[in-house]
Amino acid sequence: MAAVTRRLLLGSVGLAVLGGAAYGASRVVCRFVPRNHPDFFSLLELAPDGEASRRVGEALLSQSDMSLDLPRLASSLAGRPFTRAAMGETCPTSRAALVKDQCALDFAEGRIVMVDGWLLSETEAALCAGRLLCGATA
């Protein structure tokens, strides 16, 4: 029983060391692997947490022909130049400015949604919808 316990202990430690080494090595190696891992959730903070924002979100979700979920929203925002840059931006002010630029570009390119008569850019509506979906899944 004692032998089993010692072996088990040594094995576990060995596994943990190996696992740790593998994890450490992976982290080191992964640094050199180019990846696109935009921070979608940080953008959602830009949508105000209020009744208006909720209505905009609901309107977009109900108007959209395909069912929108968080991954779809994230990938659609990642597909737009300024929101893609915003997802990789850590400074909140620069992030907000990039999102504003994306909204302006949406308007210029006619990507507009209408909620209660308000003409809104698809990006701002998507952020409101994202916030709503996040709230629902939380």
Binding site: D101, A104, L105, D106, F107, I112, G117, W118, L119, L120
Partner: peptide
């Protein structure tokens, strides 16, 4: 007009 105001980043328009 609302589209142009949005594209210039000046504000938003609610159609009446």
């Amino acid at each position: 007009i609302g589209q142009a105001i949005g594209a210039a980043g000046l504000g938003r328009v609610q159609l009446g």
